[in-house]
């Protein structure tokens, strides 16, 4: 195993261009979970932690910009960001435990591509844009078009996630709920973020499909003013939006049922 330690963005992009099999890491929290299960022979890791210009977070009247190294804790610790984007902090506080929150990054949460990612639903609900950069070009991709399959995305091997932007708009309504098997150190069994602003509802769910996804049928139904008398009415629509599976953590049936029950209870509160 080899570890590269670039100290600038260009150096990192050069390294990636030269060897697209490199695995960039920021906090390393996803990598460490499965560290013992891998034969790491032939791996090359690129540790981004010394690339200072990726370790930025800024907010103006229009948008919040997260750098590739912005951690969950950076957001939790910022009152301004928490006030403008409350769900980011709500979700960040439920990632692992404090040790993970101080190391794990928002960009890494996207890059890892887990369907159970806790940071992704709230960013997607807030209309996040992912900034990808390679040695030769820069591309912006809306987060809800970033994933293409289980742990698959539009990111090309020579591209690095260099930042994330979320537009500031006023929200009439915002809500996030994570269901884990315990109150901390838990991988999400089912989770949902719901945000409503001038242009309508955005409903994003995790752990119910191969990747974190918007529930577009449900969004349309809510935008049309449809009401839901029972959880089953919600489930009827959701079944077109999600495709949960059975695994060692839960069952498809539980994920489907509970997502519908959570949303039903919430919109009728």
């Amino acid at each position: 195993m080899k570890v590269l330690r670039p100290t600038s963005r260009n150096e990192a992009l050069d390294m990636l261009a030269d060897d697209p099999s490199i695995r960039p890491i920021a906090g390393g929290t996803d990598l460490m979970v499965s560290w013992h299960h891998h034969d790491k022979t032939g791996w090359t890791l690129m540790d981004l932690s010394r690339v200072d210009d990726l370790n930025t977070m800024s907010m103006d009247d229009h948008a919040l910009q997260l750098g590739a190294l912005t951690s969950y804790w950076d957001v939790i610790a910022s009152k301004d960001v928490t006030n403008a984007f409350p769900l980011l902090t709500v979700a960040a506080r439920q990632v692992g435990a404090i040790q993970i929150q101080t190391r794990g990054t928002w960009a890494g949460n996207i890059a890892n591509g887990s369907p159970a990612a806790d940071g992704v639903p709230v960013m997607m609900a807030y209309n996040a844009i992912v900034h990808l950069q390679s040695r030769t070009e820069s591309t912006d991709v809306p987060l809800d078009q970033y994933f293409t399959g289980y742990k698959q995305s539009v990111r090309k091997p020579d591209q690095l996630i260099v930042g994330i932007t979320m537009p500031r708009t006023s929200h009439d309504h915002e809500w996030f709920h994570k269901v884990g098997a315990r109150s901390a150190q838990a991988i999400t069994k089912v989770g949902v973020a719901m945000v409503k602003n001038g242009s309508g509802w955005r409903v994003v769910a995790n752990s119910v499909a191969p990747f974190v996804c918007r529930c577009k049928r449900l969004e349309s139904a809510l935008n049309d003013g449809q009401s839901f008398a029972t959880p089953a009415d919600v489930a009827d629509i959701l079944k077109h939006d999600i495709a949960p599976i059975d695994d060692i953590r839960s069952t498809a049936r539980y994920r489907q049922t509970v997502l519908a029950r959570l949303i039903h209870a919430h919109i009728n509160e």
Binding site: V33, A97, A181, R182, A184, Q185, I187, I248
Partner: peptide, 23 residues
């Protein structure tokens, strides 16, 4: 304890859920 072929299949601290102080 989730078993496969009679032996524990969820033998990791992430997937075998003991309570935390928060629970």
């Amino acid at each position: 304890i989730v078993t496969r072929d009679g032996a524990m299949a969820n033998g990791q601290m992430t997937n075998y859920i003991i309570p935390t102080s928060g629970d």
